[in-house]
Design a protein around this nucleic acid. Structure first.
Lengths: 208, 208
DNA sequence: CGGTTGATGGTACGACCGTACCATCAACGT
DNA sequence: ACGTTGATGGTACGGTCGTACCATCAACCG
């Protein structure tokens, strides 16, 4: 047996470098040579661990998605003993966590935007286990809205409170995506985005 | 004098071809050879009319932006004699016009998303006269909201109705962008997007 | 202690891309 | 008529990218 190496750590090291390259110079700049130079290994090694470019890009896409998802759970894990926080606070934390308000989240958002745009015309860069993720987020937001409004009838009702909560949940997620896009493009400041989030929550919890 | 040709028409013919290529295969597929083949001219001619690739991309970006903007004015030009339509109808028309609900608008939205993502790491593909466009849209939406609510105090007030209208206008535009993104990615259907738009308008005009 | 084998480096090859250069055609003023 | 000149075609060149191929090193088992 020759010397063994932690494959997962090496792959993480390389996908991290790829993530930095994409965040800095865009998806088309993520060549084997650029990623190898950024991660401090040889071109041959990148090829060895990911086979071809498609494998590298898919692995990087999955890594950045998992990294972003990990930031969601960070604020809600402790405090199981106390009573659950009010739904408005949960929703606000969920929205704010999505916004690219610091450099790390901005880099992730830029990378995700690059992959998102590429998926519109390529559809092979998205790992196929991620197709249903937005639907789960809608359910989560809708559940919080129903909890806030005191209505518990979630399963399939026509034009009932559950239907309205579902539309409001789509509105919440669309607003978060749009605000993220505006912040990245420089059209919207971070303070304005936070004010818009609070204004949206006012609309959602005020009129019952 | 040799034979003269309408330069604007030729440029439009080529930028249209470039727009189709980007909508179909993405920005990185917009090579000189692909655009030349799509527009039915030689590579040399594309070079002749746009100088280099940067010129071609900037011209295409401007063309698709102007084309999208032209669709906005199409529904509001006639009927100057009658009374102005209610603000809610104006806002709804403005939102719906942005959504990629048919093939033409979808193609434009895909191309704009590609340029938007490229601008995050390149910032040379956006013609510089387009930087202030979103700000004008915010003013337009905020004015309609104030007209709906019967408050006329627009210029700089602190925490007044104008400030709230401004935040609501940002919310409207962010929602439109987010819904567009969701439709393009296939997470949101056209009917759901329209229902979300109506739900948002309910929130905006109901609680005064 | 030697050989099997995972890990790594270097490099060459074919394809494509952007661009510069040279050539040709056609129309209109003189 | 004819030459000036805008419009167009073809092609070659340097660079880069993805990938395949060959070689080397090192560790552990037998």
């Amino acid at each position: 047996m020759p010397r063994r190496v932690d494959h997962e750590e090496r792959r993480r090291q390389i996908t991290d470098a790829c993530r930095r390259v994409v965040a800095r110079d865009g998806l088309e700049a993520a060549t084997f040579q650029a990623v190898a130079a950024e991660s401090g290994v040889s071109v041959r090694l990148v090829q060895y661990y990911f086979g071809n470019k498609h494998g590298l890009l898919v692995a990087t896409h999955r890594a950045v998605i998992e990294g972003s998802a990990a930031r969601f759970g960070g604020g809600t894990s402790p405090g199981e003993s106390a009573e659950p926080p009010p739904p408005r606070a949960v929703l606000r934390a969920l929205l704010v966590a999505q916004l690219p308000l610091d450099d790390a989240r901005r880099a992730d958002a830029v990378v995700l935007a690059a992959f998102h745009a590429a998926a519109l015309t390529n559809e092979a860069v998205t790992p196929q286990e991620l197709r249903g993720a937005p639907r789960a987020l809608v359910d989560l937001v809708a559940a919080q809205l129903l909890r806030e409004r005191g209505d518990g009838a979630l399963p399939g009702d026509r034009s009932g409170p559950g239907d309205r909560a579902r539309l409001d949940a789509e509105l919440v997620l669309a607003s978060a995506a749009g605000l993220t896009q505006g912040i990245l493009a420089g059209h919207v400041s971070g303070e304005t985005a936070l004010a818009v989030v609070d204004r949206l929550l006012d609309h959602l919890v005020d009129p019952a």
